[in-house]
Design a protein around this nucleic acid. Structure first.
Length: 286
DNA sequence: ATGTCACGCCGAGCGTGA
């Protein structure tokens, strides 16, 4: 089972990059962040394209900012939108959606940026992370938290720690909030796979930062032990950051080996085995 | 001192967010 997460920075602006990427990488589960689109507009934009490819869709979007999605072709059950009891700014924003896909509880999250240390938005970020921890804590051990976490776990996850001193994404309270989440038994599977490599997932659009590989690793896949033990590959898809019209984030891709009991969840037949339209039933999720 | 994008707004360029 291939799980991918990608902050697309507007799915409307990214459609021409997203669909070819989907057809090349063929992920079974896709977590999207910063879709920047209300749910009806998302469905109008991509509903048919995703149904043709066998994906069910769970959405939590809003008109202008934020927005997350969860796509799955290995089942999409028990969808939860948002973080129950989570904080707002001031209202609850569209930053989380979760569902059970192929036997794994999958969370697609877009953690608040924090803007400036000790700002209202920074405190909101810490509160939001605490609510995420609570939600994961209440759920099963077979869990994966995927998304734009907006925290560089260590100084090795930024191109120059000195350049980030006093800024968000690297402060002790943010890292402590991430550690509290990891302490539930989650593992940062990309760092586990590449312990000593320079691995970034985000590069500012400005100043040729990508070209110089001056980035940060803030898009993470955090897996509970039953999932982390199945990781066969974990990597950042830098190719998706190249060329024209990219997001400022690259996708993170994780392959899971077959579960110990051999249950890989519902299997979607290939297009040739489908009906005349090549389409599968749509998700009933809004 | 954001070398960039993307958003709404309603018709262009500005304020906001990252």
């Amino acid at each position: 089972m291939r799980v991918a997460t990608w902050n697309v920075n507007s799915v409307k602006q990214r459609k021409a990059r997203f669909l070819p990427w989907l057809d090349e990488r063929l992920p079974d589960v896709v977590c999207l962040q910063e879709t920047k689109l209300a749910d009806d507009a998302f469905t109008a934009l991509l509903g048919d394209d995703l149904a043709e490819r066998g994906y069910q869709v769970a959405l939590n979007g809003e008109v202008q900012w934020n927005g997350v999605a969860l796509l799955s072709r290995v089942g999409l059950d028990d969808v939860v939108r948002g973080l129950p009891g989570g904080p707002g700014f001031p209202h609850q924003e569209a930053r989380a959606v979760s569902a059970t896909c192929g036997g794994v509880r999958v969370h697609s999250v877009y953690v608040p940026n924090g803007r400036e240390p000790d700002s209202d938005h920074y405190r909101y970020k810490l509160d939001w992370l605490a609510a995420l921890r609570d939600a994961v804590h209440r759920g099963p051990e077979a869990v994966v938290v995927c998304g734009d976490i907006n925290i560089a776990p260590t100084d090795a996850d930024v191109f120059d720690p000195a350049a980030f001193a006093g800024h968000t994404h690297v402060t002790e309270p943010e890292r402590a909030a991430l550690t509290a989440l990891l302490d539930l038994g989650l593992r940062d599977v990309v760092r586990d796979r590449w312990p000593d490599e320079r691995v970034f997932s985000y590069w500012d659009y400005r100043a040729g930062m990508f070209h110089q590989d001056l980035g940060m690793r803030i898009d993470l896949v955090l897996a509970g032990a039953p999932v982390a033990d199945r990781v066969a590959a974990a990597w950042v898809d830098r190719k998706a950051r190249k060329g024209t019209g990219p997001s400022d984030h690259a996708p993170v891709v994780v392959d899971l080996d077959t579960a110990p009991d051999g249950d890989i969840g519902p299997v979607v037949p290939p297009p040739s085995a489908r009906g005349r339209t090549g389409k599968l039933p749509q998700s009933r999720g809004r």
